[in-house]
Write a protein that binds this DNA or RNA. Structure first.
Lengths: 259, 259
DNA sequence: CGGCATTCTTGAACGTGTTCAAACCCGCTC
DNA sequence: GAGCGGGTTTGAACACGTTCAAGAATGCCG
């Protein structure tokens, strides 16, 4: 669909190739099928080492300051080997997102267990997010840099990021669990809230206030607004507006792959 | 405020320096003060040549495929000289944005002259935007890539982009001219509409439909929604929501430099 | 064991954006 | 003219992300 990338840029001799081997995304956990070898295969162990080295260096030095050479060295492999498992440095970031997301889910669990009201649940989850990502503020800008580029596998609409995006939406679906909602919205809200959280992230990235106070304030405000909007959606006075918004969302979904 | 960038990355010998000379942003047009020499100074002419070469190559080959070496050669200067005038390749893009924005203003003029209703004016201006940027779709992603990075001078909140952003808001202020509005919003709307247009841009970037039809449809829908919201804002029933939104916006403005 | 295929690994090489110290130019004053 | 000084220009050099052809390891079948 998108042309395979190397068409305008001048190349060396013979610029073929397209998809790498990429021993990735096997069905389930390792150690399931095959001839039950004890644990991870050799390649998988190497991949693991590379991810770990990368995450550690990212955390310590930031994304830009971490070179692929440093990652390779820290993982005890040759430079080219890192590229065998991760076709680009950006792709290494995906591992990072995954980790952050899992931490976020974990941090949200207590809130979701304790609170019943929409406002409290949403607020708790959003504040948990801000909490969780705080240690990475110094380099998280990068998320958006390539996230906005349609050609980058990191943008949330790229197939490669589909899982992580849908996991994000899932979390917001949990936020809505047990909450009374206008039924026209029930379907749309998880994706909308996920988008909203991306907006907060964008604000957060630009926020250099101490302790990220401004982002926290913003979360309080916007959660109020969002919850108000959701509740107002039931009001018959707003029916025409609601119709418009739903029509827009329907169109939006045609554009993407949207499940 | 933001540390001057070269603190973690390993450097060659002596990594001092901070601000370049950058013979830029003189008060008015050239040829005003000084001993009235005919026209542009030598340096200004060189700078001009570099911009022109860059824009042409960007248009022809896209941003990534255009190398600084190619720009320099096309401008008839040495590589290093391009960096004397533009501290980075990104900064060259700014010249491009400027050009696009001026084209957008020009394309909007007829609409603003002819239409009186808010919906028509906003719709016309937004469609004009989509029209104007269409030729650059193949590489405009880059706008957002660095636009989202707080450290990049291209992000709209960076001082270096302040002028171009405020020019954008100005255009939307024109859209509102002669339109009846809830006066609480009058102040906020230009910036909000500009933000809205950025959102559309983001959609547009990801839109690979033929003739960018989907974006156009999106514009129609969202303009409807936006106009509805503005009109509803006057409704007393929504006063509490309105108050919340305004409080949020106030907070938002503290964060930025916002005029 | 000997071949063969597949997966994994290597490191040199390429092209890129960017930096820097040294030169060049040009108008000025002695 | 000689010397000075600041704006301008140069091109080599650097570090980086990425590619690639070639080589090891490993597994598999006879």
């Amino acid at each position: 669909m998108v042309e395979p990338r190397g068409s305008n840029r001048p190349r060396g001799p013979r610029g073929s190739r397209a998809a790498r081997a990429a021993p990735d995304s096997a069905a389930g956990e390792p150690g399931s099928g095959e001839h039950g070898s004890g644990e991870l295969s050799k390649g998988e162990r190497t991949k693991e080492r590379i991810v770990e080295a990368a995450l550690e260096l990212f955390r310590r030095d930031g994304y830009e300051a971490t070179t692929m050479r440093a990652v390779a060295e820290a993982a005890g492999v040759a430079l080219g080997n890192a590229y065998y498992y991760f076709a680009s440095k950006d792709l290494l970031l995906q591992a990072f997102y995954q980790e952050v997301h899992e931490a976020h889910v974990a941090a949200s669990a207590p809130v979701l267990a304790a609170q019943r009201g929409l406002r409290e649940r949403l607020l708790g989850v959003m504040l948990a997010k801000v909490e969780v990502i705080e240690p990475y503020h110094h380099f998280s800008a990068l998320m958006f840099r390539s996230a906005a580029d349609p050609k980058s596998p990191l943008n949330p609409f790229h197939p490669a990021s589909a899982t992580i995006r849908s996991e994000g939406e899932q979390l917001f679906a949990q936020v809505l669990e047990g909450v009374k909602l206008p039924k026209a919205l029930r379907h749309e809200l998880p994706a909308l809230l996920w988008t909203y959280s991306m907006g907060i992230l964008l604000y957060w990235i630009h926020d250099d206030s101490a302790g990220r106070e401004r982002t926290r304030a913003m979360v309080h405000h916007t959660v109020d607004v969002v919850v108000s909007c959701i509740q107002l959606a039931a009001n018959p006075l707003l029916r025409p507006l609601q119709r418009r918004v739903l029509a827009m969302l329907a169109d939006l979904r045609i554009g993407r792959g949207g499940a």
